[in-house]
Design a protein around this nucleic acid. Structure first.
Lengths: 178, 178
DNA sequence: ACCTGAACACCGTTCAAGT
DNA sequence: ACCTGAACACCGTTCAAGT
């Protein structure tokens, strides 16, 4: 069967899941696909683009809904945690995409909308970015400390995650801080 | 003159400042020091340890003082920005050290103290980590977008940095969120 | 259009052997 | 004690040449 962008992304995702980001090299990917390293470059521009596409995939399954804006924001961060925590270095990969093309991430735009809808005197995008950055940092920390302590990651958000996120959302939505 | 840990760190810092993290390789460092690559390993365990030491150096110049706890926290984040923003990939380097040995960073412990002193019903360390993570993410974003847009970094914190940090500090210190 | 082979210019780390 | 030389096992990317 012929090589394709989709096949490359599928394999990349499986290598990331099974062996981690350190093992996700173009050459390793080519070996896994029984193909010469150069072949990959007919379908993708470079490694950075591949990782950005991988990040979009990961985030496509994360939604944020709830009865109120504040609850939707909170639920979004909870879903983000549960979706990403079990993917090795998943938070790091998403941070790459976030730096390169933030506007291409529907999840981020949804967060920005929720913030802007609740308070029109702040920039929804600035608030949304601060929130996703905080989430990713905390997820990354849980992932790396789990590796260091040679234990499994917590599949459900620890209380430190929840309180930190709540502090930030509360800080953005409370009227006194304007 | 003989090689030494100090000399290696000095050179590493200068390479990072002049050429960025991508050029800060052990081999490049060895060339710069007119020494064989293997020699470095007599003075430092590995590249990770070198980067962690570099991070400690960067943070050693950052203090947080002010009339109140809230102002000290705020001033600390401002100083963090101004000290790190002009070091290419500086935020990324510090994040490495933060993941490996957080308790070795006096700056972080100071932040934790300030939070704990103000509110004894929260974990100062959890709050401090959320704050430093947010700062580093925002600094990193400013650094990478500056590169992407081929412009200089803002030497003084942009308003988006300040409002985000203020939202988080306010969220942690306000009594309603407990 | 799609893929290979081979090259280019690199990595981090180890370790016997030298001084 | 400190350093070299050389090796080991890798990288990302390009590109003429093949089918």
């Amino acid at each position: 069967m012929a090589l394709s962008r989709e096949k490359i992304l599928d394999t990349a995702f499986s290598v990331l899941n099974q062996y981690g980001l350190a093992d996700l090299s173009m050459r390793r990917l080519a070996t896994e696909l029984n193909v010469a390293p150069g072949s990959l470059y007919y379908h993708i521009r470079n490694k950075q683009e591949l990782l950005a596409s991988l990040a979009s995939r990961m985030l496509s399954a994360v939604h944020c809904t709830g009865d109120t804006e504040a609850i939707s924001l909170y639920n979004g961060t909870q879903e983000l945690y549960t979706q990403i925590i079990s993917i090795p270095e998943g938070a790091e990969v998403i941070r790459l995409a976030l730096a390169l093309h933030p506007e291409d991430l529907p999840f981020l735009c949804k967060l920005a909308e929720l913030f802007a809808h609740q308070r029109d005197d702040i920039s929804g995008m600035v608030a949304a970015k601060s929130l996703i950055h905080l989430c990713l940092s905390l997820i990354e920390e849980e992932q790396t400390t789990a590796v260091l302590e040679a234990r499994e990651t917590m599949l459900t958000p620890p209380s430190s995650y929840q309180t930190s996120i709540q502090a930030l959302i509360h800080g953005w939505l409370s009227t006194e801080c304007s």
